[in-house]
Amino acid sequence: MKISGSQRLPFPPDQSYALMQDPEALARAIPGCESLEQTGENEYRMKMKMALAAFSGAFEGKVRISEQQPPSSFRLDVEGSGKIGFVKGGGVLKLEPSETETVVNYDGDVQVGGTIAAVGQRLIEGAAKSMIQRFFEKLAAS
């Protein structure tokens, strides 16, 4: 499923860019992230707990940052799997200055599998968007 949109960060692009490469900031901002541990250059192992209404599930997965072109764009891939299925998402984030702030345009794919794919279909887009929004809200607050 394609997913795209834009969010704002109240920092100039170079600062926003740096923030989004900082594992500690990411760990704080990714909704449900319980741990983020570096496994290689720009690669991390993540444990997260996703909760959406009655749904809840623990996921273990990887975060990878690539195609870095500071401070204007990079690619982010996140994948996780747990007992209720798996989630994979990836896309390019483009940063544009807007006065003293940054507009982050994202464009990517989300793929889910397992039980969540079967029952959560109508919720995935909304859930993904709301997670992205929370992610940026938390980043903005850091």
Binding site: A54, F55, S56, I84
Partner: peptide, 13 residues
């Protein structure tokens, strides 16, 4: 009506 199906699918525990 919502919780029990989620539990049966193990999406909620």
């Amino acid at each position: 009506m919502s919780l029990i199906p989620m539990m049966k699918l193990r999406l909620a525990a």
